[in-house]
Amino acid sequence: TGIVNVSSSLNVRSSASTSSKVIGSLSGNTKVTIVGEEGAFYKIEYKGSHGYVAKEYI
């Protein structure tokens, strides 16, 4: 489990790349469930599926 550490919002992406499609966003202080790691990204549970967020903001 981690907490989103941004002042505005954090993009949730379809894969572990900054060039991948943005599938949603999370507000600061949102609790997320981390299910894996891939490079500079965490794989998280997101809306019944999975998404990826940059580690530096969790």
Rank of each mutant, 00 (worst) to 15 (best):
Y57K: 08
Y57F: 15
S9D: 11
V12Y: 01
V4R: 04
K47H: 11
I34A: 01
S20W: 04
A54G: 10
G48F: 06
S25K: 14
T18C: 15
K31H: 10
K31C: 12
S14C: 10
R13P: 00
K31L: 14
R13D: 01
N5D: 07
N11K: 14
V12Q: 00
F41T: 02
S27A: 14
K31P: 10
V53S: 01
K21Q: 13
A40M: 12
E56N: 08
E37G: 05
G24D: 03
S27P: 15
T18A: 14
I3F: 10
T1M: 14
V6C: 14
L10A: 14
T18K: 12
V6Q: 09
T30V: 10
S7N: 12
T18M: 15
Y46H: 05
K43A: 06
S17G: 08
V4Y: 03
G28H: 15
I3V: 13
S8Q: 12
H50A: 07
I23F: 03
V6E: 06
S25C: 12
N29R: 12
Y57Q: 08
G28C: 12
I58H: 02
S27Y: 10
S20A: 14
R13A: 05
V12A: 01
K43Q: 08
Y46T: 02
G24C: 05
K21W: 08
H50Q: 07
L10S: 05
S14A: 15
N11V: 15
K47V: 06
K43S: 03
S15M: 12
V35C: 08
S14V: 13
V32D: 00
V32L: 05
S25P: 05
T18F: 14
V53C: 04
G48S: 08
G24M: 05
V32M: 03
I44G: 00
V53I: 08
G51P: 00
G28N: 15
N11W: 09
S25H: 15
V22I: 14
H50P: 06
V35M: 09
A16S: 08
I3Q: 08
V35H: 05
E45M: 11
T30G: 05
Y52L: 01
Y52D: 00
S7Q: 12
S27F: 10
K47L: 14
S49D: 09
G24E: 02
S19D: 15
A16Q: 03
K55T: 04
I44K: 00
A16M: 04
K47A: 11
V35Y: 07
S8I: 11
I44M: 01
Y46M: 04
A16W: 04
A16R: 03
T30W: 07
E56A: 11
T33Q: 10
A54E: 15
I44F: 02
T1A: 09
E45Y: 09
T33I: 15
Y46N: 01
N29E: 08
A40T: 09
S27R: 13
G39W: 04
V53P: 00
A16I: 05
I23H: 02
I58K: 01
G2M: 07
L26G: 00
S7K: 14
L10G: 04
Y46W: 11
S9I: 11
I44V: 07
S27Q: 14
R13Y: 15
V12F: 01
N11Q: 14
T33C: 11
K55H: 03
Y57V: 05
T30S: 12
S25Q: 15
G48H: 07
G36H: 05
S49M: 14
I23S: 02
G28Q: 13
G39E: 08
K43L: 10
I23V: 07
K47P: 02
I23C: 05
V22L: 07
T18D: 14
Y42D: 01
G2P: 05
V4P: 04
K21M: 13
G39R: 04
L10D: 02
L10Q: 05
V32E: 00
A40D: 15
E38P: 01
Y42I: 04
S15N: 09
G24L: 04
V4I: 09
V6N: 10
E45H: 08
N5T: 12
Y42K: 02
E45N: 09
G24A: 04
G48A: 07
G2V: 09
G24H: 02
E56S: 08
E38F: 09
S8N: 12
S14T: 08
L26H: 01
T33R: 10
E37P: 03
V6K: 12
G39T: 03
I3P: 04
L26V: 09
S27H: 13
G48I: 03
I3C: 10
K43T: 05
G24W: 05
E37A: 08
K47D: 12
G2D: 04
V22Q: 04
I23G: 01
T18W: 11
S25W: 13
S20L: 02
S15V: 07
G39M: 05
T1D: 08
I34F: 03
V32Q: 01
E37V: 11
T33D: 06
A40C: 13
I44Q: 00
V12T: 01
G48V: 04
K31R: 12
S8P: 13
S15E: 15
R13G: 04
G2Q: 06
I44H: 00
E56R: 10
S19N: 14
Y52Q: 00
I58N: 02
S9C: 13
S25G: 06
F41I: 01
I23Q: 02
S25I: 15
H50M: 09
K21G: 09
L26F: 04
S27L: 13
S19A: 12
Y52R: 00
V53N: 00
E45K: 08
G36E: 06
K43G: 02
Y42W: 10
A40Q: 13
Y46P: 00
S14E: 15
E38I: 09
S7H: 13
Y52H: 02
G24I: 03
G36Y: 04
V32T: 02
G28M: 13
V4L: 07
V32F: 05
S25T: 15
L26Y: 02
A16L: 04
S14Y: 10
S19I: 10
Y46K: 00
S25R: 13
V12D: 01
T1W: 10
Y52G: 00
S27C: 12
V35G: 02
E37M: 09
Y57W: 10
N11C: 14
L26S: 01
E37C: 09
G28I: 11
I34N: 00
K31S: 12
V32C: 05
K43V: 13
V6S: 12
I3E: 06
E37S: 09
I44S: 00
G24V: 03
A40E: 15
I58F: 06
A16N: 05
S19C: 12
I44P: 01
K21L: 12
L10P: 10
I3R: 13
L10M: 07
Y52A: 00
K31D: 05
V32R: 00
K43I: 14
G28V: 11
A16D: 03
G28S: 14
T33H: 11
G51Q: 02
S7L: 10
R13M: 15
E37I: 10
T30E: 14
T1F: 09
V32H: 02
E45I: 13
S14R: 11
S49A: 14
S7F: 06
V32Y: 03
E45P: 04
G2E: 04
S49W: 07
S15I: 07
I34L: 05
E37R: 05
N5A: 09
S9R: 13
L26C: 04
I44C: 01
A16V: 06
V35I: 15
S17V: 07
L10Y: 03
S9Y: 11
I3G: 04
K55M: 08
E38D: 10
K55L: 04
S49C: 09
I58D: 02
G51M: 02
G51T: 01
K47S: 09
Y42E: 01
E56D: 08
E38M: 07
T18L: 15
S19P: 06
G48E: 10
V12I: 08
E56K: 13
S7M: 09
R13W: 15
G48T: 07
G48Y: 06
E37Y: 06
K55D: 01
K21A: 15
Y46F: 14
K43H: 06
Y57A: 11
N11F: 10
N5S: 11
Y57D: 09
T30A: 12
V22E: 04
A40K: 10
Y46R: 00
R13H: 15
T30H: 07
I58G: 01
V35Q: 06
V4N: 04
K21I: 11
